[in-house]
Design a protein around this nucleic acid. Structure first.
Length: 110
DNA sequence: CGCTTGACACCGT
DNA sequence: AACGGTGCCAAGC
């Protein structure tokens, strides 16, 4: 078996972990994740979620933009899918925007 | 005063 | 070197 491939834990791995930490019915932003990692790589965070192979286990749909917009999720065309999932979690979405977004926003502990 | 749009800046793959 | 599932700021309406 080929192992010892990533001596360095990929940045994405951390992102996924943080993503899983998001409590149900809550939301988080790319920036919050970046902040939790003590980095400004908001874009890299999005990249990580996009590369996420455990989408089935990682609630990447709970991650939205800091401005309250959903963002993309598997292509902006499928953003509706994200909305549906969020609504199921109890998050209200208005025309691609989170209702009471700030109230649902979840920040990572120190 | 509040919302929307555009441009530029950051980081990692 | 270029591209993102972004963020923040400024200007316009």
């Amino acid at each position: 078996m080929v192992l010892s491939k990533m001596v360095t834990v990929s940045f994405e791995s951390k992102v996924w972990e943080l993503c899983r930490k998001i409590p149900k019915g809550k939301l988080t932003t790319y920036k919050e994740i970046g902040k939790a990692l003590h980095t400004k790589a908001y874009r890299a965070v999005g990249q990580a979620l996009k590369k996420n192979k455990n989408t089935h286990a990682t609630p990447c749909h709970r991650v939205v933009n800091s401005n309250g917009s959903l963002g993309g999720y598997y292509g902006k065309l499928n953003s509706i899918r994200k909305i549906n999932l969020l609504e199921k979690e109890g998050i209200k979405v208005e025309k691609g925007r989170i209702a009471n977004f700030k109230e649902k926003l979840f920040s990572y502990p120190c």
